[in-house]
């Protein structure tokens, strides 16, 4: 599936790790918001508002794992979880994993079709199916993000290294 898998220097692990932790916290907040709200905490409502700009938050379209509807819809939850898992995989593997672009098109197609079907009033997926379909799309986007981060760190660390004569020709 991968087009190329490059070894990244050890120094490049810090930035992907920090981004992965941030992504994990962001994804955890999706579950944390209803959990806090179920315990009558004011923070639950505020945390839900944080996710508002990126999701419609219609309760019927959100997964519920026992504390009430999550802070984002099932599709967004799948995208967030997939992205976080991919960033985690990239960080653990400590190397760039870059799938062929055709895969992005293939995994995006079901989500795009489902979204379009919902907009024109055709029958669309249920919440669980929406979550499962969005998961690989989020995972691939996360792999590309991880690849981009590793490359940026690699290029910058190479340019900052005074002993390194191998400069990247950026034009």
């Amino acid at each position: 599936m991968t087009e190329n898998q490059k070894s990244a220097p050890r120094t490049s692990r810090l930035v992907p790790s920090l981004v992965t932790v941030a992504a994990a916290l962001w994804t955890a907040g999706v579950v944390l918001a209803p959990w806090l709200a179920a315990r009558d905490s004011v923070l639950g409502g505020w945390l839900r508002l944080v996710y508002r700009p990126g999701c419609h938050q219609i309760a019927d379209r959100c997964l519920d794992i026992g504390f009430g509807p999550m802070a984002v819809c099932a599709r967004c939850a799948g995208l967030y979880l997939g992205g976080t898992l991919a960033l985690l995989a990239t960080t653990i593997a400590n190397r760039s994993i870059r799938p062929r672009p055709i895969w992005l098109l293939m995994v995006a197609a079901p989500t795009i079709l489902d979204f379009a079907a919902g907009q024109v009033g055709l029958p669309a997926f249920g919440n669980s199916a929406r979550f499962i379909v969005a998961l690989p799309l989020g995972f691939l986007a996360g792999l590309y993000l991880g690849d981009a981060l590793i490359e940026i760190v690699r290029v910058n660390s190479r340019q900052l290294d005074p002993n390194n004569s191998d400069r990247d020709s950026l034009g």
Partner: peptide
């Protein structure tokens, strides 16, 4: 204000993904 903040964050994420998908050496 919110459009600028969201545009900066998510535009960069889209650019990063695009940068990885379309990257090319001369």
């Amino acid at each position: 204000f919110f459009a600028l903040v969201l545009g900066a964050i998510f535009g960069t994420i889209g650019g990063l993904i695009g940068g990885s998908v379309f990257k090319a050496e001369p």
